[in-house]
Design a protein around this nucleic acid. Structure first.
Length: 277
DNA sequence: CGCACTGTTTTGAA
DNA sequence: TTTCAAAACAGTGC
């Protein structure tokens, strides 16, 4: 499901619904989802308040009282839902947080790729792989052009693959990568060191703008994504290339092509996005 | 039925 | 050190 705008949508929904709630009991029907000690996971959260929910890249950070943080990554199809106490588990419910107020928070995950781990607050930045090496957020303040120039010039990887690497920039996934490359008129297989400073600046602006715009639309619903209220995002109506292979480019009319780049399906316009060699 | 595809990340090997 | 393919898993569509 989720790239940064979708995870941020989930974060806001969770904040509305369960911020301030107290955990009464934790059940883990699918133990593999918890990568930290399972016994501690089930016992340590009992009695704790969900004080805040943060996000970093595609990671959700549940801040509990007494300096505990639960790191949750939804991977492909992870999803939270809030139900009345006693509601039956869903087919793919992996964790149940019973709350003190007659509700329960479910973590559901059809493909079972999502993972969560419990750490002492602050430790996530040193112990959680993926999180500790995460690149800057795609924002005006955090994503400096000088930084991009440096990492792009140093690498010889294809730009699409490079943007998907979360240690370079946090939060972009397959959909928004294809979108920003189309917007910036960059062929996905161009190697990063071939991009001019001017192109890089354009790409940076497009990344920031696109992520902001998608977040404002509550994210994109392609397969299964819906927010905690069960509402779908609206941004799929705004996509220019993703999911439009064989359809005309909305800028020049050329038929969009779909190829594989670094084992990910990649849609682009062969006329607008010419590979620089 | 078999195969390819799907919004992600980690792992191990080259 | 850097980069890449396979694997983790379930569902859907051809």
């Amino acid at each position: 499901m989720p790239e940064l705008p979708e995870v941020e949508t989930v974060r806001r929904g969770l904040t509305n619904l369960v911020k301030g709630a107290i955990i009464r009991k934790v059940e883990v029907p699918y133990p593999k989802v918890v990568t930290s000690d399972l016994t501690e996971f089930k016992s340590d959260l009992v009695g704790r308040t969900i004080e805040k929910i943060d996000r970093r890249g595609k990671y959700l950070l549940f801040r509990f009282s007494n300096n505990l943080t639960m790191v949750s990554h939804l991977r492909m199809e992870g999803q939270y839902s809030v139900e009345p106490e006693g509601a039956p588990l869903r087919k793919h419910t992996e964790v149940v947080f019973h709350l003190e107020d007659e509700r329960q928070l479910f973590y559901n995950d059809t493909r079972r790729f999502g993972r969560m781990t419990l750490v002492k607050t602050g430790d996530e930045l040193v112990t959680v792989s993926g999180l500790k090496d995460l690149g800057p957020e795609p924002t005006e303040e955090d994503l400096k052009l000088s930084y991009l120039k440096e990492i792009f010039n140093r690498s010889h990887r294809m730009v699409k693959t490079f943007l998907l690497d979360q240690s370079n920039i946090a939060g972009l996934g397959n959909i928004y990568c294809d979108e920003v490359l189309w917007m910036s008129k960059i062929h996905p297989e161009t190697t990063t060191d071939k991009l001019s400073d001017r192109k890089l600046s354009e790409l940076r602006k497009n990344i920031i703008a696109e992520i902001n715009r998608a977040t404002a639309h509550h994210g994109t619903t392609v397969h299964s994504f819906s927010n905690i209220f069960g509402e779908t995002g609206q941004f799929q109506n705004e996509l220019q290339v993703y999911g439009r292979a064989k359809l005309p480019c909305l800028r020049c009319g050329t038929t969009l092509e779909k190829i594989k780049v670094g084992q990910r399906g990649t849609t682009f316009c062969p006329k607008c996005q010419v590979k620089k060699v």
